[in-house]
Design a protein around this nucleic acid. Sequence first.
DNA 1: AATGAATGAGATTTCATTCAT
DNA 2: AATGAATGAAATCTCATTCAT
Lengths: 203, 203, 203, 203
Amino acid sequence: MGRVSKDPGERCRELIDVAERLFLERGYENTAVSDIVREVDVAQGTFYYYFRSKAAMLEAVVEKNLDELEMEIEEIISAETDPVSKLNRIINAILRLSVGKRELMEHIHEESNAVMHEKMERRTVARLAPLIVGVVEEGIAERRMNAVHPQEMVEFLLASVVYLFHQPGMDSESARSRRLCLAMEQILVRLFRIDEGSFSLHL
Amino acid sequence: MGRVSKDPGERCRELIDVAERLFLERGYENTAVSDIVREVDVAQGTFYYYFRSKAAMLEAVVEKNLDELEMEIEEIISAETDPVSKLNRIINAILRLSVGKRELMEHIHEESNAVMHEKMERRTVARLAPLIVGVVEEGIAERRMNAVHPQEMVEFLLASVVYLFHQPGMDSESARSRRLCLAMEQILVRLFRIDEGSFSLHL
Amino acid sequence: MGRVSKDPGERCRELIDVAERLFLERGYENTAVSDIVREVDVAQGTFYYYFRSKAAMLEAVVEKNLDELEMEIEEIISAETDPVSKLNRIINAILRLSVGKRELMEHIHEESNAVMHEKMERRTVARLAPLIVGVVEEGIAERRMNAVHPQEMVEFLLASVVYLFHQPGMDSESARSRRLCLAMEQILVRLFRIDEGSFSLHL
Amino acid sequence: MGRVSKDPGERCRELIDVAERLFLERGYENTAVSDIVREVDVAQGTFYYYFRSKAAMLEAVVEKNLDELEMEIEEIISAETDPVSKLNRIINAILRLSVGKRELMEHIHEESNAVMHEKMERRTVARLAPLIVGVVEEGIAERRMNAVHPQEMVEFLLASVVYLFHQPGMDSESARSRRLCLAMEQILVRLFRIDEGSFSLHL
DNA sequence: AATGAATGAGATTTCATTCAT
DNA sequence: AATGAATGAAATCTCATTCAT
């Protein structure tokens, strides 16, 4: 009833945060706009004051995640000097985020999140590939890495990482996770012809 | 109006085929059951006589595709003796099917098919990985390949290959397709430590 | 097409009133939500904005009726002092409402209203029994009535009244109605050991 | 597949028995004709060979129950000589059957059986009232009973008794059941001016 | 910047019944 | 006496979005 005015930036963030949580908890399709506004305690119309559509909200959620990841990666790139260490830390950062989010959705049927997962996969490749390709090219220049098609390889790498670590049972403890991390270390080493033992991945 | 009885097997196949085409053309979500029955020219109820739900139909479509692919792969496995050639032909078979289907959906907004794509991705990895792991282990036994985590590597590989499927502009001609194929060849060679030049992929 | 906003209370009442009439006229099962909204001239969604489901609407209709009846009974209880007169007027009030509603459904097949009738029967007993038991206990205290199990007797009484007066041919004129009223007077007198001639029931 | 011919009478009884059980277990509305034929293991069409419609089946189920009850009552009437004893045994017979059936539906939501309950209620009154009125008139002739409106009083009685049937928690043990039986005994005694202590009802 | 009542198209599903064999 | 594939009408409900205030 009472009309509560807030800083628009904050309102917007509040909406995105609640939306993200609900999308993860019950899936994009199973989350109604009315669920989101109920939790934030604003009117239905308010949602549309901030977001053109529900799809636009999904976009916002995904981009927010990638903003964070991108920033983290850029920090790594500028903090570290060794391209191999950069790559190691970048992959770890991606894994940590993926698995972190995954935990929220542990109990929902995979299917329920096809839409969100797809969008995430696509946008992750689109936004992160350039950064990583940069690192790989640096590695090539320093003869620490080797690749004929860095762009395509990095794309495959990212798509696989997003897919594999979005699977059920991907908590940081399971034997399956452990094996996947070890395998991924080897994959990285072999794919880019890097010295064995250069990687150490953890969830 | 007129009631046309048919062999149930055929009716069922007819429904699956039309459903598959429509799912690809306009996306799973954008295809109504009423669209399917209109094309097959049966009553709405007939659909539900054969399939418990629309989701069950999606399942049927996906499994049919994987049945075909599995059969083709099993044929390759028993026809060929060299594990490297097997792998080469298997990957080509998967690409061919994927791209074939992809052409049907050329113009629709990618997003419309998240659900179907997800299901396909997950089931492809689940059903084909065992077969390919078998080939890789054979290759390892014959010292033509090498891998510490064959299962996980094959999963990585399949996820990458399926990722291709979902790329816009994946006709057999484009420079982009060419590069992706070359990159995939390199991935195969490096992942399993196979002799350079053992692979030749085409869409 | 045009959007007409109204006081929610009024909208809600409008919907309930139309629903009640249609439920009575053609039966609960034979009334579609679309029939209701068409008459009220609102969109289908508006119905579900106010009522969670069609069943919830039935509930609302039944409770509204019992609200009215309950109020009338409470008025009688506080207006009258003699418990026997109270009981007489209460039963008359129940009969009048039952038969009034019944007239609306005169021509429909009884079966069509099993659901509504059941719900009404159950809820009538649940909501009115306490009030009437109060009156009976008052009567017992004043030695004007007598009963060992007032609660159970009142329940039987209410169930029967609702059932009997919900029968076909229960208009206020028929010989059958007349006989039933006379019998009911005697039943009341005997059941609670009240002075002969204390009751006078009319439809 | 195989076509199993059986004695038509038995087929028919088999269908009725299964239908009755399912109607009680899950309610009339929630039982599909396909559920019935699946359990009896005949084709959908076979159902319609024996019964004009699902509603006709409900009728058959109800009438079968009343046939049994009617026979039992007729037996009581001819076995016993004392009209009061007759009435006592008849009411007990009705209670026993009602409660027996009730046990089957213990767990379903009451609402689910409105249709069947209604039909049962109406038909019980219609078919059993004449028999019981006969007994009452006999009692009146012998000065063991007294009633001005035997027909209506018996209807009142039957409606009350059947109402019992549809109460939740009607096992033979509960205090509630006990109280209802005692109240019913009192109703009988008072309604027909019979000697106190003439009745003894048990579930 | 916010409200929240109202929209309305449309989708899935159910199932009693039929009928050619 | 029996089959079972096919029918098809209809009904409930969802929900993203709008718009007058």
